[in-house]
């Protein structure tokens, strides 16, 4: 639970290796796609679609890891391995609220 919301070194490295413009484009793509993935996760949970749930969690884990949203990535990984939850995945949406805001700040900064 002590995971950082954002490890800013990850984005700095991305800018370094891929160029600042491309890094920004990639991050904007993630910020646009993340709500879609979270929606897929919620719908899969509601429909007891274990396969869809695992795949959506996997996707979020993979992207969150890329941008250094460590806590979000860990939470998604837990869901990927843990299978269908008994309750709606509210916690991860809250975590994305924090991580998304921090990432957006990187874009504006």
């Amino acid at each position: 639970m002590t995971d950082a919301v954002l490890d800013s070194a990850a984005y700095a490295e991305l800018q370094d290796t891929m160029g600042a413009d491309f890094a920004a484009e990639l991050l904007e793509t993630f910020l646009a796609e993340a709500p879609v993935m979270l929606d897929a996760l919620r719908k899969a949970a509601a429909a007891s679609d274990a396969e869809g749930f695992r795949r959506a969690a996997h996707s979020i884990k993979s992207n969150a890891g890329l941008f250094g949203a460590t806590a979000l990535a860990d939470m998604a990984r837990g869901m990927e391995l843990g299978g269908l939850p008994t309750a709606a995945p509210d916690a991860i949406e809250a975590e994305y609220g924090r991580a998304g805001a921090a990432l957006r700040a990187l874009l504006d900064g």
């Binding site: 891929m18 484009e25 990639l26 993630f30 796609e33 996707s59 993979s62 992207n63 890329l66």
Partner: peptide, 9 residues
């Protein structure tokens, strides 16, 4: 890759 971010990167 089914994930847009991964595909782009």
């Amino acid at each position: 890759d089914d994930n847009k971010v991964n595909r782009l990167l």
